[in-house]
Design a protein around this nucleic acid. Structure first.
Lengths: 204, 204
DNA sequence: CACTTTTTTAAACAAATGATTAAAAACTAA
DNA sequence: TTAGTTTTTAATCATTTGTTTAAAAAAGTG
């Protein structure tokens, strides 16, 4: 049974993704990426020209992974606000459970280079023009949602989902909680966060 | 009117704090710190021996700044749970409004070196043995609080306060919100977060 | 002042690191 | 097979960067 050989380019990208996410751009060593990929150092530049270009590719792909799946959830005209919140939470907890360091990776990058990649993706602009956002504004005008700045709602929803992934190393180091326990706790949040957010939407 | 001259050691620390917080350890250049401090490069090693030792000092001080003030809030035997939550939220929003990059700085550091500094401070352990935590357990046993894992509550409270500071560059880049508007929004959260958290504590 | 100690500076060092080169190896097509 | 192309490798380069050195300047001391 012949195992399909991963090609060199993909091996480099996989190694680069891991190391860039762990160490950041400045902390990553091209030699470490080459070693992890099991290739000669010169091949990295042969395929990608430079560390920076390789990083750009990894970061762009990571942004697409993170922002890509959510648009169709937000633009589903068949679902209510509550259903969208549930879908959003489940989608992201599932996604991040398999890629727990994406949030810190992206936030670090935006912090160093605020204009660099966001325009390439433009996902947050799309979210602002989504069907979900229209529903939200409408519910707000109908008095079903208190007239608070929608940015609070965005921050709360994203924060409740993402913050546990950002803070996991700190929580783990200070409580000694196991990976499995942490995963179970995240799983619980799929159910709890929508309930919490709905309660919060009643506060004025 | 003689302006008190800041001594060299303090100038280096101030410059180092800024640059380490902006660039991280790996991304920071000792030459940049020296230039920002307005001192000769060799003085950095004369006063602090190495980049690493300087970083350790800055990080320890930053952790103390972040975790220092909260213990006496949590151990105040005169205040209720609700009052402690209010005090906690106000304390941190005020603190971080003047030091907005502390959260990302600390989380990045714990991520690279999970055991390194937390023991030096041990603040999270203290929080777990605080009077506040006893009150929380008691309310839980009395049925005033649903029996959910307290880690949810911790994550929610800290996340609602801290996440807006972590995400500010991304929110700012994608919405174009001004610093003043963001500050106003954070100010609103002093009032809203305690209300939200109290509502969340009713969900089972 | 004379002397010692502390602080500061310019220069240099050594290691790390991103990138390049030139040749070898592997592969492809005629 | 052979000629040409692509991929891989070992070695090297050039720059950056943390650190050290030795001397000068400044500050302190008796």
């Amino acid at each position: 049974m012949a195992v399909k050989e991963k090609d060199t380019e993909q091996k480099i990208k996989d190694a680069a993704r891991t190391i860039f996410q762990e160490k950041g751009f400045a902390g990553a060593r091209t030699r470490d990426i080459a070693e992890k990929a099991g290739i000669n150092l010169a091949l990295l530049n042969y395929y990608f020209r430079s560390k920076q270009k390789l990083y750009d590719i990894i970061m762009t792909e990571t942004m697409q992974t993170f922002f890509g799946g959510v648009i169709k959830i937000l633009n589903d005209e068949q679902t209510s606000i509550e259903e969208k919140i549930e879908a959003f939470v489940t989608h992201y907890i599932d996604l991040l459970s398999g890629n727990a360091n994406i949030p810190h990776f992206i936030l670090s990058n935006v912090r160093e280079d605020p204009e660099g990649y966001l325009e390439k993706i433009g996902a947050l602009q799309k979210a602002k023009h989504s069907f979900f956002f229209q529903q939200f504004i409408q519910a707000s005008m109908e008095g079903k949602i208190p007239p608070i700045n929608p940015i609070h709602f965005i921050l709360n929803l994203i924060g409740l989902v993402v913050f546990p992934f950002l803070a996991k190393p700190m929580i783990a180091a200070s409580t000694g909680i196991s990976d499995q326990q942490y995963a179970d706790m995240l799983e619980e949040r799929k159910r709890l966060i929508p309930l919490w957010v709905n309660e919060m939407l009643k506060v004025k």
